[in-house]
Design a protein around this nucleic acid. Sequence first.
DNA 1: CTGCATCCACCTTGATACTG
DNA 2: CAGTATCAAGGTGGATGCAG
Lengths: 111, 111
Amino acid sequence: MEKNWTPVTAAKGVEQALKIFDGKWKLVIMFHLFGGQVLRFSELEKAIPTITQKMLIQQLRQMEVDGVVRRIVHAQAPPKVEYALTDWGQALCPALDALLKWADLRENHDR
Amino acid sequence: MEKNWTPVTAAKGVEQALKIFDGKWKLVIMFHLFGGQVLRFSELEKAIPTITQKMLIQQLRQMEVDGVVRRIVHAQAPPKVEYALTDWGQALCPALDALLKWADLRENHDR
DNA sequence: CTGCATCCACCTTGATACTG
DNA sequence: CAGTATCAAGGTGGATGCAG
């Protein structure tokens, strides 16, 4: 199932992929959730002390809409909401590793 | 040579990698240069009709500083300047492929 | 505890005109 | 041809206060 990538369409494809984990905090959130971690809203808040509530909920919502994060609501008082990565979200990990390895190459040949 | 990634440091590492090809036009430029293409400033301009001169030169400059693009100046009148990817820049291609493949997975299990 | 609304500052991009 | 300078506009994130 090959695709006919032109420079433009390929770039757009990557951009669309990037948009999904773009935003100042999405990567941090994902790395906290990699490996099947399931965390409450307040736990994420504690784990990322410098994030504001607004940003945390905003980024989580977008990630939920995009299908990388699953939202688990427990009907309780007080409210309890947990977040986890979807299978697709977990699947991003190798690609990010590839980026990290690429970044490491820089030192070898640098300028 | 293993590293001890915490969620935060891993995220920062990826972010630094991302910054290098972040910007509205850098990916388009790179995909035009993948495979060892060497293009003049004016050729890039023609290849990307919707970009402005300001943006083209701005993005190229940043990419040059970051070490993904090489600038080749020919001492001539009229001026002739060519741009090509560095080895390190070329090495990004597989990582971008990984991202494209990840994006394709979405359809299989979707939401 | 979880989440929403508002206001504000900054940064990136775009349009345009100009130069060696 | 290759690049610079200036100004305006939109989007993103941060601070804060309020609500179910």
